[in-house]
Design a protein around this nucleic acid. Sequence first.
DNA 1: CGCTCGTTTGATATATTTCAAGAATTGTGG
DNA 2: CCACAATTCTTGAAATATATCAAACGAGCG
Lengths: 252, 252
Amino acid sequence: MSPPSESSPLHPMLRKLQGWQALDAADCEAILGLPHLMRPLKAGQYVVWDGDRPQFSGLLVSGFAYRHKIAGSGARQIMSVHMRGDVVDLHNSMLGVADHNVQMITAGEVAMIPVEAIRELIAARPAVGAALWFETLVDGSIFREWIVNVGRRDSRTRIAHLLCEIALRLEVAGLGERSAYEMPMTQEQLADAVALTPVHVNRMLMALGADGLIRRSQRHITVADWDALAKVGDFDARYLHLDRRRAQPVPA
Amino acid sequence: MSPPSESSPLHPMLRKLQGWQALDAADCEAILGLPHLMRPLKAGQYVVWDGDRPQFSGLLVSGFAYRHKIAGSGARQIMSVHMRGDVVDLHNSMLGVADHNVQMITAGEVAMIPVEAIRELIAARPAVGAALWFETLVDGSIFREWIVNVGRRDSRTRIAHLLCEIALRLEVAGLGERSAYEMPMTQEQLADAVALTPVHVNRMLMALGADGLIRRSQRHITVADWDALAKVGDFDARYLHLDRRRAQPVPA
DNA sequence: CGCTCGTTTGATATATTTCAAGAATTGTGG
DNA sequence: CCACAATTCTTGAAATATATCAAACGAGCG
């Protein structure tokens, strides 16, 4: 298990948490000093299974992942998409029994942190506890927006909304620009995120292209006019609570 | 502002938090000693408006409330339903700016607790912080289930699922039995919770009745065969994390 | 270079919505 | 406590967004 360092794989998490809550030197040291095991994962591999009693909390160091559940009908519903720096199963590990799956979209690496170490950390350093809490509160806000997206927006709007969310989050994570980025998901996965059929997702992507809102070549998305796409997607970034984030040191 | 006491309106919250986390005498005293203002609210009144910067966190003491957002199309999506003992806007008040509305379904009372007092409490008493965190984690789990419900279940299943959730939560809150309870919402509100049309909700309720799964007279719901309804509703209570709750003193 | 997975397109089916109106229940002012 | 108004619930018929089924096309991979 690694010593604290600037190049620690835990660094993206530290940066993210600092966005939510002021952390002093001791807090930072404690975070970077968390014991962890680096685990390389292939595309499609599960990080947590529904029903598990996870002993570790996974921090996504590279690659993309999603949370999902399988309904009784066999249909899959994706509930969130995650990228570098996201703690992908605080929810499951804190609650004891996983109520959903976490699966890799692409290949990547996850730092596995023992739940016990996290519990001790938040007991010892309340500011870190608060930061982690905020992280889960923002996740909650995103879940709420997804309920609206899936429940009360038509297919076109729904997809445009997801394109906006991913664009913005990639930009904030330093993994692309909102105006041009690489979509990490297939259209089938997109479909399970917006609760539509892959066929229909495809048609709507074509339509958004035909209307000049986006351009695509394979998975590469170019957003011609951000404001227009946001309008079509009924996208108001407030729910991401990015404004709550404090000034950050420039990423390495 | 009230002194701590057995009959404090904050007592239902204490009981709920004790379910998530062991609290010592000092923790309990600190919770019951929280400053608060009792606010009577009429049916339909807003507790928090989307966009507000709430200075208080509302604890629902009596009556029912829900969270909702209005999509760009004007359609409303209800994201959760709340009852006695629920803290209805930790989310909004902790995040600073409300990203959704909280509105009373029925008349009721809300204890308004200053956000500052809560922040001080969690700083001073980490166990209480942990309990509140669990509360929001469980809320998050329910949000995730609702994404699935609204996204990947057909109308009949969706409604049966909601009937089960409400039944069970009423029972746990000591406000009814799962086999016979008073539905606090109109069919129009039900519709906005499951993302359907009121007309269609009505038809499906009639259908569930015709199939002998439930009986209704006005808002009174009788569940003839719980297991059958749960099966039709693809309802697996795990997401409510009730098993995490520890033994409780019998309610007064 | 052939296979597999992902995307694209077309034709048809269907669950749910929309529109409309009547019946029942609840609330309210006199 | 009644009568009227306003919700809420119920039912029917027609419209439509999205799903389903099916097949071809394209691109990455061993």
